[in-house]
Design a protein around this nucleic acid. Structure first.
Lengths: 348, 348
DNA sequence: TGTTAGCACTCTCCCGCCTCGACTGCTAAT
DNA sequence: ATTAGCAGTCGAGGCGGGAGAGTGCTAACA
């Protein structure tokens, strides 16, 4: 089993023993069926495909029991049953085992569609959306993980210089500033000072540190402050940027028949702040699954699965999927997991 | 009158004289009414608010005439009438006069909401969407207008250099490349060569010109090609980038009651290529209005209004609005026009 | 006690029918 | 050319009833 799913809801994990084996089987059957048909599931549906050895009456009594326990919902008396958020939570916590996650299929899929691993990383959000057929979310990690390799001034013209901030993921910011003097070696010594001060530190470290302006540094005070400003600006623009891909996949779901579903979905997909909050780092959990109203307002009938991803072992962001509560968690997890591995192994 | 609207449809402009004054009045009344109520308009609606001096019977005969001519549509026999695309076209070509465009109101609105002009430009798309309550589109102009000021190599480490492309709107691209030699003055002479080749040209000019590699340039062949590649890459990433803001305004329209409308709208808003095509430069027309199916597939029941905008007199992009065909053209034009002026006057 | 067959019950969906109300198109008069 | 009057048309919405689906309950059985 995947052991690191988020179980921050009161119904997670610990309920295992309260369900008999047969109840588990019925619940799993119902969720599986519902995920594939997106129609209320009846007792005979379950009997036919999953439990031919018992009668529908038995299944019915199990179903009504599960309903009492809060796992199932009956839209109306003569309809079948539909899983509740609690059921999905139980499902992802207990029924998804690693073996189900078909990494090889994913691998083939990606190999067919994309030429290089670099291309895969670049198109992360698009790939996830394509492969899962849900809306995908890509969030760039906050700047705690970004290391400054060097800060350089480049002479331009008319006493201006270009500030380059070189990080371990490329040059990230440039801006022209005014030089306080036109001395020839000013730039050179400024460069050495800047290198000394900033190289090897993360963005957050730099911004939270108060540097003593000793005599040697005084001459570069202005430059220094300009650079700090620039870093602050960059942090602001980069921190937790969120990209959404495939937002109108919703129209391909049966759920879209219901106007409110479409509206809710589009509303939450439009609220980047809310999405960021939902994707936000849950400690050491590698995969996080938020289901329905568990997470407060806004995610009714929806679920959000997200995974951290790393480059060269370092956390660089999160990649996720948002879609209907009845989403194909196995597939989604397979895609996210495989992609995570691919990205992590990347070394060019 | 605004004289520079797009009139690239067969019904534009020239139909003026074919409509009697009263027909014009009826048509305008109907479109105005419809724009504000978004319900089919009956003969008595028009009589009450616009033409009390004639009877409903007279108006009815005018209406049925206008319908014959293709300006109106009757959803069914006992409903009022609704404007056709042709009616909207006629409306924007003939009934919107400059005086109607209340620039001052717009000015006040912007002044209340934003602190500085710079902020207004930066948030162009958001402002337009807020102010009009429609979905807005912002397209950065293609690279024909972008001039390269200089190309510079900056020494890094281990025989690599950073390529900087400095344009009149800032440094736009940087990439590390391998230097073919570690000679000391290589970078310096390369810089002078690059400056000579590229300074003052536009991106497109550079990419379309075949440069003779004479003896002097041979030594820099590799660098030269790297830079060209870089420019090509940049052009690709920048050319006609399109931003969409406020896509789910659709849910605030009465049209959203109809599922197909929502779907169509979201579909086209998701198709950036199609939007780009629709926004694409129409010669010297300052404002372009595309209405409904006039423009081929995809824009049924919708309209797209776009305007070029300039900074310091130079065209830098387009700003537009996409929404229902019955949009408030006067308001939209007021917003776009006023914002265009503000942006153009910007000089910091 | 758990399981089962049988059956009555409930509820949705859908169809046809109806009425009401909104506008129109037509006609005949001015 | 305009108008009043009126018949005609169509959609919206309410009502009722039949069909179908799936359940809960009960009583019998192992």
């Amino acid at each position: 089993m995947l052991t690191d799913f988020s179980t921050d809801c009161q119904t997670g994990g610990k309920m295992d023993d309260k369900l008999t084996e047969r109840k588990k089987k019925v619940l799993q059957a119902l969720v599986d069926s519902y995920i594939s048909s997106v129609e209320p599931i009846s007792s005979s549906d379950i009997q036919k495909r999953y439990l031919p050895e018992v009668s529908t009456a038995t299944i019915r009594s199990e179903l009504s029991h599960l309903e009492e326990m809060g796992y199932l919902i009956q839209p109306h008396v003569s309809a079948g049953r539909v899983p509740s958020s609690k059921a999905y939570r139980y499902y992802v916590d207990n029924f998804i085992i690693d073996d189900d996650i078909d990494l090889d299929a994913m691998k083939d899929y990606l190999a067919r569609k994309y030429d290089s691993v670099a291309e895969i990383v670049k198109n992360g959000a698009k790939i996830v959306s394509d492969a899962t057929n849900y809306t995908s979310l890509l969030m760039i990690s906050n700047s705690d993980t970004l290391t400054i390799k060097d800060v350089k001034l480049v002479d331009m013209y008319d006493g201006t210089a270009l500030v380059l901030i070189i990080t371990d993921s490329g040059v990230i910011k440039d801006k022209e500033i005014q030089l306080p003097t036109s001395e020839e070696d000013y730039i050179e010594s400024a460069n050495s000072m800047l290198g000394k001060c900033f190289a090897g530190k993360t963005l957050s470290q730099i911004l939270s540190t108060q540097v003593d302006m000793d005599s040697e540094l005084k001459a570069f005070k202005q430059i220094f402050e300009d650079v700090i400003d620039l870093l602050g600006e960059y942090k602001k623009s980069r921190d937790g940027q969120l990209y959404v891909e495939g937002a109108n996949k919703i129209f391909e779901y049966p759920e879209s028949k219901n106007y409110d579903n479409v509206k809710n979905f589009m509303t939450i997909v439009g609220k980047k702040d809310k999405l960021k909050e939902l994707m936000h780092d849950d400690g050491n959990i590698e995969f996080s699954i938020k289901i329905g109203a568990e997470e407060g307002d806004g995610l009714d009938n929806m679920a959000l699965v997200s995974a951290k991803y790393h480059i060269k072992g370092k956390e660089v962001g999160q990649l996720g999927v948002i879609g209907p509560e009845r989403m194909d968690y196995k597939k989604v997890l397979a895609v996210l997991k495989h992609l995570g591995r691919l990205i992590d192994k990347l070394d060019d």
